[in-house]
């Protein structure tokens, strides 16, 4: 199957996903379960990575800005910009593509190969709407919170690293964070997060839903879904940056 066919099939899938749920109560329960599976269960890794990467960004910046004419507050400024613009929305989304994407593909793919999706269809349930829409809404609803938390912890990690290493003063760092603050940059980060959340929920769902074969095929589809989600996040990142920041 060529790329054009995959793209067409992906959009046909979306047209079946975006229908009114058959039972709102069942849908709400599925949505809350996905918030837990896709969002809450990713809190730990996002918090951990954000804190330490924020620290590394601040240390690297401080070590490279050793000119006495450059104010030390620039470390906080550079760390804040890097974290808000790229690290939190893009880097965290790529991590989520790996963690959540493989989970989505393998869970839906296993349902496909064990005929659970056929069972839903035979009952008269729109299986795509039932399985994929709660995932999309959960990701789009929860990831902005997750990424915002990543931003905060990244910046906090930078401050902690600076204070513990003695490479820069905590007050200089805080001054740098407040320097030239543009709320639009947060809007830009959230827009990117929403697009990435949509990709993280739909691309792995596509790979899982149309898997053919057995457990090996499911494993292969999981790998492919992570690769393609990452590629699409990187491409979308480029175009969004060009559209929103230039």
């Amino acid at each position: 199957m060529n790329y054009i066919e995959h793209i067409g099939k992906y959009f046909l899938m979306l047209s079946r996903v975006f229908r009114k749920p058959q039972r709102s109560k069942v849908f709400y329960q599925a949505f809350m379960k996905e918030v837990e599976d896709l969002g809450l269960k990713s809190l730990g890794i996002i918090m951990f990575i954000s804190f330490f990467i924020g620290g590394v960004i601040a240390l690297q910046t401080a070590l490279n800005l050793d000119n006495p004419f450059i104010p030390k507050s620039l470390v906080g400024f550079a760390a804040k910009r890097s974290i808000i613009l790229e690290f939190a929305p893009t880097f965290c989304s790529i991590i989520l593509a790996g963690k959540v994407g493989s989970y989505i593909t393998s869970s839906i793919g296993t349902m496909r190969v064990t005929e659970q999706i056929d069972a839903l269809e035979v009952m008269g349930i729109n299986s795509l709407n039932h399985l994929v829409l709660p995932k999309i809404l959960a990701a789009v609803f929860f990831y902005p919170f997750l990424i915002s938390l990543g931003m905060f912890l990244g910046i906090f990690g930078g401050w902690t690293a600076g204070v513990l290493s003695g490479l820069f003063n905590g007050l200089d760092y805080i001054e740098g964070i407040q320097l030239d603050f543009k709320p639009f940059l947060l809007f830009y980060a959230i827009v990117k997060t929403l697009v990435f959340a949509f990709l993280i929920a739909t691309v792995p769902s596509y790979h899982g839903y149309y898997v053919k074969g057995g457990s090996i095929a499911v494993g292969r589809a999981s790998t492919q879904s992570v690769v393609w989600t990452t590629i699409l996040i990187v491409i979308a990142n480029y175009f969004l940056t060009q559209m929103l920041l230039t």
């Binding site: 058959q22 039972r23 109560k25 069942v26 296993t110 349902m111 064990t114 005929e115 659970q116 056929d118 069972a119 035979v122 009952m123 008269g124 349930i125």
Partner: peptide, 29 residues
């Protein structure tokens, strides 16, 4: 569709749901 019952070769029970939830699922829907 609601007049049809199907028993699949591998049972096709929903892994994440209990026996009760599996059987109750069509009723809920």
């Amino acid at each position: 569709r609601q007049e049809i019952g199907m028993v699949f070769q591998g049972s096709a029970l929903f892994d994440s749901q209990t026996v009760e939830d599996n059987v109750m699922f069509p009723l809920k829907m």
